[in-house]
């Protein structure tokens, strides 16, 4: 494990280490990120002293269900170390009810590289808001922190240990091919995986349906009239 006071992005630092041959399980932790990233070029607000920013290198696990496993690990760590009723929205948005709309307290960015048809490595990047910060205006209505929502000051080291232990357990399940326990745990942590209205886009078409759980690969099942749609990617929005 490598700890830095400040990096551009923990995923980028770990990608460089991976290119230099870093081993499966290598972890990068930083107190602050100057260029924290989310998916599709979104930035992850990562000021010093308010969050936990960590990336984990995986070389033996690459199934897409890994993204659900990362969500489960974060939610379980927040429950164990932060006393927060953290829940999941498909596939791995970590949210906590906080008066009004659910607040997003953690972000997960899973990045893989594939060459010659083989996955070379996967980096699981996780950012958790520990304390309240001066949020950028576009986040004020959506972001939350562990301390702000639970009233408890969480020890970052305790949270990190819980997080890495939970992630290791779930990765071992995926490696062994026995993911039924993982999928059941995910569904238990994701009340919106049953009976919630969601919207998604395919090409220029916008669709709407009602969630009916996940399949054996972790894809979201959505009822549209008499038809059961299977969503394995793209952006799914919860209609509140």
């Amino acid at each position: 494990m490598r700890h830095y006071r400040q990096v551009g992005s923990t995923n980028d630092v770990l990608a460089e280490l991976a290119d230099q041959g870093a081993a499966h399980g290598t972890v990068v932790v930083a107190d602050a990120q100057t260029a924290g990233r989310g998916r599709h070029g979104h930035r992850w607000f990562s000021p010093a002293g308010t969050g936990l920013y960590v990336s984990v290198l995986l070389r033996t696990v690459s199934a897409p269900v890994l993204t659900l496993a990362a969500g489960v690990a974060v939610a379980e760590a927040l429950r164990a170390a932060g006393g927060l009723e953290a829940t999941l929205e498909w596939p791995n948005d970590v949210v906590v009810a906080g008066g009004g709309d659910p607040r997003k307290v953690a972000g997960i960015l899973v990045e893989a590289t594939t060459a010659r048809g083989r996955v070379e490595r996967v980096i699981v990047g996780i950012g958790i808001n520990l304390r309240e910060a001066v949020w950028p205006v576009e986040l004020v209505d959506r972001a939350g922190s562990v301390e702000g929502l639970s009233g408890r000051r969480v020890d970052p080291a305790h949270l990190l240990v819980e997080l890495l232990a939970a992630l290791a357990t779930r990765c071992a399940e995926i490696e062994s091919g026995a993911v039924a326990g993982l999928l059941a745990r995910w569904e238990a942590l994701a009340p919106s995986s049953h009976g919630a209205i969601v919207e998604w886009s395919v090409g220029s078409g916008r669709h709407r349906g009602v969630t009916e759980g996940i399949d054996e690969h972790g894809a979201l099942l959505v009822r549209v009239g008499t038809h059961l749609e299977r969503l394995a990617g793209g952006e799914v929005h919860h209609v509140r």
Binding site: R39, P64, V65, L66, T67, L68, P91, N92, I108, L109, V110, E111, A112, T113, T114, A115, R116, V119, V122, G218, A219, A232, G233, G234
Partner: peptide, 21 residues
């Protein structure tokens, strides 16, 4: 050249950089 990223394929929010062979 070999190793250059051509595109990303996303599956269940796993962002996969596809490199040229």
């Amino acid at each position: 050249k070999p190793g250059d990223v051509l595109c990303i394929i996303e599956a269940m929010k796993l962002m996969n950089d596809i490199k040229s062979e």
